[in-house]
Amino acid sequence: MGRAIMVGMAELKVTSDPDDVLVALGLGSCIGVCAFDAEAGVAGMVHVVLPESVEGSGDEPGKYADTAVPALFAAMRKAGASPARTLVAIAGGAQLFQFGGNVARLDIGKRNAAAVQQALRVQSARLIAEDVGGTVGRTVSLRCADGAVVVKTLGQGERELATLAGRRFSQLARAA
C-alpha cells in the first residue's frame, strides 16, 4: 500500500501521485465521495458531513454535500482531470445508533446519501458504485495508482467496491 493521505471530516484532498492512497477513516453518517480520472491519473476525495450548507456560515465547502461535490470537481479539474472522464464512487451514510423501535431519529446518513447523489446528478457526474446506508461504520480508501476503491467495515473486513477506471461500467454497481 502506498502513502496514506487522511481525509478528515469536511476535508477535500486531490492528488496525482500514483503512490498516494486517499483514506477517510471511520465514516458513520458521513459520506466519502471518491473521484478518479484514470487518464489524467488524478484522484480526489471529499468527506461530507451534512447534507445542506448554511448560507454565510463561512464553513469549508467539504462539509456539506451541496458544496462539497462542486468543490471536488473544481479541484479535480484544476489538477488536470476531465469531469467527463471522472468516475465516482461513494460510501458511508450509515445510521449507527439503534433506538428501540424508533429509527426515524438521527437519519442524517440517509439524508447525506440523498444529498450527495443529488449533487452528483447536478454535476452530471458518473457515479458507478455506491455502498451507502445500513447500520455499520466504514473506512473508505481510493488508490491513486489504479482507482481502486476499498471499503472496510467492522466484522466484514475489507472489500473492493469498485475500480474507478475503464469503460466497462454502463450502470451503477450497488453493494451487495
Binding site: G26, G28, C30, V49, V54, L96, G100, G137, T139
Partner: peptide, 24 residues
Amino acid sequence: PPGIAVDMAGAILASLAAVSPALG
C-alpha cells in the same frame, strides 16, 4: 430514549458530531 452503537470509534464520533447542525 437512548440509542446505542457498537462500531469504529471514528464513525461513532463523526455521527455524533453530525447531529449538531452547526458543526465547528
